[in-house]
Amino acid sequence: MKEKEEKKFLKSIQMSLRVGLIVFFILSSLGLIFKNGFLLSYGIIALVFTPIMRVIMLCFGFYRLKEYYMALASFGVLVLMTISLLI
């Protein structure tokens, strides 16, 4: 049971990273094809936010697995990344 949950957890991390990369690729490619600077920039922003999404998934995942210290560490990373966004 625990192994199944762990696999599901790792799969969700994998998915968050892949979705970020796909969004980056699609938006940036469209931006280049249609010479749209905004789309290109949004693609880059999607890529920059991919690790942040991954940290959010880790935070929720560890919480669901009842690994509270790890969830707290993930939340700490998230707070620090928010700080860098505000600087």
Partner: peptide
């Protein structure tokens, strides 16, 4: 970021990347 996301998306599932060790050091 691109390299990290691409590589991690595969290595996490294979068990090569240790997410617990990673988050503590992160």
């Amino acid at each position: 970021i691109a390299t990290s996301s691409a590589v991690a998306s595969v290595n996490v599932e294979k068990g090569l990347a240790n997410v617990r060790l990673g988050i503590v050091m992160e």
